[in-house]
Design a protein around this nucleic acid. Structure first.
Lengths: 211, 211
DNA sequence: GGACGTTCGTGACGCCCCGTCATGATCACA
DNA sequence: TGTGATCATGACGGGGCGTCACGAACGTCC
């Protein structure tokens, strides 16, 4: 068997080994199972065992990847933020003025959550409450991205300086809350909701106290 | 000892019996202990045992009053809303126009949370996240109160009709988020925060889409 | 004032979930 | 093929959860 001459490729430029592949596969399987379980049972009722059972893996394996139920939830939020961030960045670069930035960003967010919810917020028990995601790296990055977008666009327009932290917090809060309310209505009207949120923010901006 | 003649009062118009008194005392003791424990350990880390231990009562007694940790947390939020509601109502009645209503309500809320936090949000572990309160009766009542206040004041001013649910949600979201950010700054500046929130809302109002 | 029925406070108990760890299987590499 | 490293496995101890049978304190009626 050994005299067949072939060049065993040196281990550069090769697809990752089996170890690495099952590792990412397991991590992804746990994430998917967690998404499903949170959707079906709600965050509070869900247990680590429920999640890991659905993957067919052993209970101990869960803890090789995540420390707790909270951490896997944060990872889910992080995952969402990571997928949303390019959309936000695209809006930020495409925007010519403040209005187009806000409108683009909010509409992108509303479309994003409207798409996500069907794979994530199914069959939630009534009154169940999803906790606010902890400030994960990606979540903070989204906040910063919005903040920097504001700073850039406002400076370009020579707008007077305002409290950027308050402004960013307020805009994200409005988007999140109106987004939630929007999802409860039928049919889901992302344009209408975005129109409301955008006009509220853009109308309020010139009135804000200057620093 | 027994021949001293006195009139045993008939049991009408009397303070409630001992049973009733210890019942309300226990319920209050559990509530106070829960507030302290949530403040020290954070909501997630706190257990029913931690709460009941602090009262000196037996573990089973807790379940005579509340079904779970979640329920006692909701009761705390309910309690806060119940104490805040009169302040909100006072602002609503005192207000002459939309601006004074919004400004009064938001300032009242900011002062309220600033006062509350020192007896409630002490010593929280970093990164800890308090879950959003479930829609308890009192919380819904506050939402409705704000909504009705808006409806009344806007109609009186012959303002055009807007989406009241969206407006109320957005205002509450702004107040809550700016309030949180305000609490993280030193010194705590309720007037400055209120000024920001009020101007954002009042500036945005005329721009909102009409129904 | 005594006796009876009711209302809770009590803490031990069984249950389930949590997070860990020793073990063995699998993989990378020589 | 051999060796060391990596990682899946599931049994295990620990602890919180919610319940329940018991007894004491209370209200009530005679």
């Amino acid at each position: 068997m050994s005299n067949i001459a072939y060049f065993p490729k040196p281990h550069v430029d090769q697809r990752p080994g089996k170890r690495e592949r099952t590792k990412t596969a397991n991590r992804q399987a746990i994430l998917d199972a967690a998404r499903a379980v949170f959707g079906e049972l709600g965050y509070d009722a869900a247990t680590v065992r429920d999640i890991i059972r659905r993957t067919g893996l052993a209970s101990g394996t869960f803890y090789n990847y995540y420390k707790s139920k909270e951490e896997v939830f944060d990872a889910l939020a992080d995952d969402g933020a990571r997928r949303f961030r390019p959309l936000l960045r695209a809006e930020s670069e495409k925007a010519t003025d403040f209005e187009s930035f806000v409108r683009g960003a909010i509409l992108a967010y509303f479309n994003f959550v409207a798409t996500e919810q069907e794979s994530w917020r199914i069959n939630r028990p009534p009154g169940e409450q999803i906790p606010h995601a902890r400030p994960s790296p990606e979540m903070t990055a989204v906040f910063d991205e919005v903040r920097e977008g504001f700073a850039r666009v406002l400076e370009r327009a020579h707008a007077p300086a305002v409290d950027l932290d308050y402004l960013t917090s307020a805009c994200i809060a409005v988007a999140r809350e109106i987004g939630d309310k929007m999802l409860e209505r039928r049919p889901i009207d992302t344009e209408g909701a975005a129109d409301f949120a955008v006009k509220l923010i853009l109308g309020g901006l010139p009135a804000l106290p200057r620093l």
